[in-house]
Amino acid sequence: MLNFLEEWSFFGGSILLIFIGLYGVLSRKNMIKILISLGLMDTGVNLLLVALGYVEAANAPIINSVNPSNAAAFVDPIPQALVLTSIVIGTAVLALGLALVMKIYDKYSTLNISEIRGLKW
């Protein structure tokens, strides 16, 4: 039971996080909230990636005085490296999105996407 919960709290939880973000993207009207939802999705994906590389009762993949050899049980380092990349790119996307939101707010004086007429045709 505990195992099941643990497993689900990582896999299921991160997937749930992704879909909460997706739902937010699809349903929110406020652009800032949409960006937050995007961030949530980002986090969910990162968590899922890291969780996939987890090895039970293993250590962080750093050779140090506590784990002085590569023979010690390490978790998979590759997802972590990927997540590092992913975080940076997520940051870039968020920052760019925020800049766009600022510009749109300058133009329309609203953050509500249904009131922005520029895309209506």
Partner: peptide
């Protein structure tokens, strides 16, 4: 296609 990007996202989802 009423110009609501969210709807497009919804359709693709």
């Amino acid at each position: 296609a009423a110009g609501r990007v969210q709807n497009y996202a919804l359709y693709s989802v």
